[in-house]
Amino acid sequence: MQEIFSIFVKSIFVDNMIFAYFLGMCSYLAVSKTVNTSVGLGIAVVFVLGITVPVDYLLNEFVLKPGALAWLSKDFADVDLSFLSFIVFIAVIASMVQLVEMVVEKFSPALYSSLGIFLPLIAVNCAILGGSLFMQEREYQSLEQATAFGLGSGIGWFLAIVGIAAIREKIRYSHIPAPLRGLGITFIITGLMGIAFMSFLGIKL
């Protein structure tokens, strides 16, 4: 239990998707102009990461890993399908996003309309595929750990985008050198936020 909690906290703060790995930067920069839209996208990312990472974990464990097919029959015990993982993960993500979109539309039209076009866009958000690939690389031991990692990374991403959106709303009123306006200053602020987040590195869990 304690280990799950530590994976969760670590993936939010220490291994933050944005500040430590720059994953999902494209939508992070494009959608962070106002707080409202960035909250919508952030929730969608938490949602999708929380679903796709455990699903990809199961696939990795029972289909892709070297020897993973042993449960089918002894003949498959030395089959290694890990080279297929990219294509399997991206297929899972694309279909999950589609599925999540349909479920949300059916059960919570209000959330659906507030997420709008962000849901389909998430399929090509690097943070989602990155979550699955990190899960595979770090070899989490159980489904709970993978879920904690997925949710934690999503929440970390959420925090980052809401933070930068709040700053960008304020910074509209300041005098920034013209060539730095917009994209340039956003990069530099993200860098500074990353430095701030690095102070979490010292935390041992």
Partner: peptide, 25 residues
């Protein structure tokens, strides 16, 4: 450390846009 990459790209954008004013937002 990772954050410096962001700051360097920010500076590259700054230089590029000062040389090409039509890119300024």
């Amino acid at each position: 450390l990772p954050p410096m990459a962001l700051i360097i790209v920010g500076i590259i954008i700054w230089i590029q846009r000062s040389r090409n004013p039509e890119l300024v937002e």
